[in-house]
Design a protein around this nucleic acid. Structure first.
Lengths: 406, 406
DNA sequence: ACGATTAGTTCATTGCCTGAACTATATGAG
DNA sequence: CTCATATAGTTCAGGCAATGAACTAATCGT
């Protein structure tokens, strides 16, 4: 719920409890947004949120009781007047991010400020795998991290799982993950974090990575498209610092924008999709690297050295991918009106080779829409999906602190 | 503001006034959604909204005082128990929709239920016109309709203006309307309806037309892309029964999706945009009708008869436009994840000739995403932009009835 | 005519924010 | 060392909005 000046018609009556929850979120958000280590007092919260000191005091008590916030010592530096009691996010609460990908599973723990405390990646070939054992292995990994966290006095209150495919979060289902060979797979998310108050949320990998980017961008720069380059090409659309997933939950899928109407068949059944030109397998094949190193990171390294040594096939393949990406981004920019793009996956790795053809293509198909500065590379990198999945739990907690109230 | 179960972090403290406004909107929305002529009582509002009878009574008094709602007689048919007092939208309040287009200006008055009460279209060539006289002529037209409405005891509380071009509603500016020859034109919207309590809102024409479609669609079918075929190709993206305009306010511009990377230059500076293949001028030119009838409706009629008589050039041109539209819609469907499309403008007129190549193209580039039933033609037609602009005012009033409180 | 039934109002209660008054604890000047 | 000043935080009365129960109002069926 949102409560301010503009009222939107809703299906549910509002009451005073909603005011309380809204203001609780306001105070929680203020505390969460405070830079780490900078003293923040009730008085300052009141002054910056517009709430009265009396209300803030009452709301902070609720947050303390819920264990979301902690009091630190008094203001250390000598200022006039009574020193205020410091407030910060409770470091004894944390969330778990988890990821299932083609070559590995991973789990990590972040505190409520988004700092990564623990992380563990287990290599594992999940191609054409059975979902059951993969999820069981991830549950075991998560359990071990949880034990480690508990040993440090840290409670895991919830988690998020990122999967490389189309998901239906509402039904906890993986609708289609071609690279895992999963289709219509229901997941027992609760088993990943048994008994955690907030449970486990499910995300598409590119969407989770996009969420992780949000926190790492300058404030106000809250609209962008994250493009994830893996075997497939995924996308996460962020508008107003919110993930925009569209009516059916799969918006931002820039990998299947048509970039070549006369092109080749895509695994999705379509024709000339971006993925058929700029996906990892497509680039490797076009560069004449078919049947080369098994792992993707090795293949990428091989491609990079081929590019460095001036291999014409490799250069042409990347050039073509860059131009195609430009076509897709130009169209996307028109339809959803975003002017900033963040490149992830192999697009980030290949940035120096990709950038020139991509910018040229953007200028040709959407002149004036993009400046080079609006085309950036992921600030998070590999653990992006994991951090984003974890961060989403933090975010839901900041927006609805009452979820953890007694 | 929105008030229910899920709280979103906001910059502004909530208080009980927000609860009041939210519930006011809830009751107002319930009354507005009641089919015309069907008796609706306070008791029924309470039962369907979840508010208590006491709250509903109090809220209804406020709506009556604001003049938004009216009591009708008692329940006519004999049912057991005390008959309830009927409630309906006040027929003495109305809004004005206005439109500036290439060949005409238009204004119309609708009551709060969206019924068109008055409408007047004045032919007028606005190509490469000065904004001042056009707006003055529209103001005069609006004034005359307002006099007529006042004569019937109807008060105009606000209005909306639709313009064929990119607009910045916040600054009341037309950023670019190539077909009018306007660029960076500030509009004195207040002059169109002097002294009206809600003022005049500004819309892009395709967006306004999309708004008008919302009300005419079956409930639950709230996600679609409206494609407006005029000289240019515009679009209005509706998600969750809300217009989605994106970060900069121009989302849904499907006319500049790239459908042919090797294609011709577009007026926007890009290359191979949908508009270069499927815009009216493009189709007329491809059909070999350059320099034909002056007015667009005459040219369209000529094209239709050429199609009827089997003219191969005309058929090929429309075929090509249909296929290109399919490419653009396939890409758009992936990026924003809409599965329904509403055709307007010449796309609606040419539907029978366009449909087959369009569906074939959709099936080729986005297989399984569209069924023929999800491809429909405008249910509103010509006055769409006008009705949508007017409807937007009604909508804002329903969502924030307190705007008209004393 | 009277009981049953439904509509709508009145009123005491509860919850939350607000503003003012008050308490608590520091700094700095004399 | 003491006191004025300044700032932090709590307490408390007041107001507002929703709630639920009790009450009044109006109609139907028998």
């Amino acid at each position: 719920m949102a409560m301010p000046a503009q009222a939107a018609a809703l299906a549910v009556p509002g009451n005073m409890g909603d005011v309380r929850r809204s203001n609780l979120a306001l105070v929680m958000g203020r505390i969460a947004r405070q830079p780490a280590g900078v003293h923040l007092t009730r008085a300052h919260v009141a002054a910056t949120t517009g709430l009265t000191k009396a209300s803030v005091s009452s709301l902070v008590v609720a947050l303390l009781d819920a264990g979301l916030v902690r009091e630190t010592g008094l203001n250390p530096q000598g200022e006039r007047g009574r020193p205020g009691v410091g407030l910060e996010l409770n470091p004894a609460r944390a969330v778990m991010g988890m990821e299932i990908n083609v070559d590995y599973i991973a789990a990590g723990v972040t505190d409520l400020s988004g700092t990564l405390l623990l992380r563990e990646v287990r290599e594992r070939d999940n191609r054409d795998s059975e979902p059951g054992p993969v999820v069981a292995a991830l549950a075991a990994l998560a359990a071990s991290l949880r034990v480690e966290a508990t040993g440090r006095g840290i409670q895991i209150v919830g988690g998020g799982l990122a999967v490389p495919g189309l998901v239906d979060p509402a039904r906890s289902m993986v609708l289609a993950a071609p690279n895992l060979g999963w289709e219509g797979v229901p997941l027992d998310l609760a088993a990943l974090l048994p008994g955690s108050p907030l449970g486990v949320a499910l995300f598409n990998e590119a969407n989770a990575a996009a969420l992780a980017e949000i926190a790492r961008r300058p404030a106000g720069d809250a609209d962008f498209l994250f493009v994830s380059g893996e075997v497939g090409v995924g996308g996460g659309l962020v508008i107003g610092a919110e993930l925009f997933t569209g009516p059916a939950g799969h918006a931002g899928e820039v990998g299947h924008v048509v970039v070549d109407p006369g092109g080749t068949r895509c695994s999705c059944g379509g024709t000339g999709c971006l993925e058929t030109v700029a996906g990892q397998d497509a680039i490797f094949a076009a560069a004449g690297m078919a049947g080369l190193p098994v792992t993707r990171s090795a293949a990428l390294a091989a491609l990079l050295s081929a590019l460095d040594s001036g291999d014409p096939g490799a250069r042409a393949a990347v050039d073509r991918a860059g131009r195609a990406l430009g076509v897709a981004l130009a169209s996307t920019a028109r339809v959803v009106n975003v002017g900033s793009v963040v490149l992830g996956g192999h697009f980030a790795v290949l940035d120096q080779w990709l950038r020139a053809p991509l910018l040229a293509s953007l200028e040709k198909y959407a002149p004036g829409k993009f400046t080079p500065g609006q085309l950036t590379v992921t600030a998070v990198g590999d653990p992006g999906a994991l951090l984003g999945a974890a961060g989403s739990v933090v975010r839901s907690l900041v927006e609805a602190p009452h979820l953890l109230q007694a």
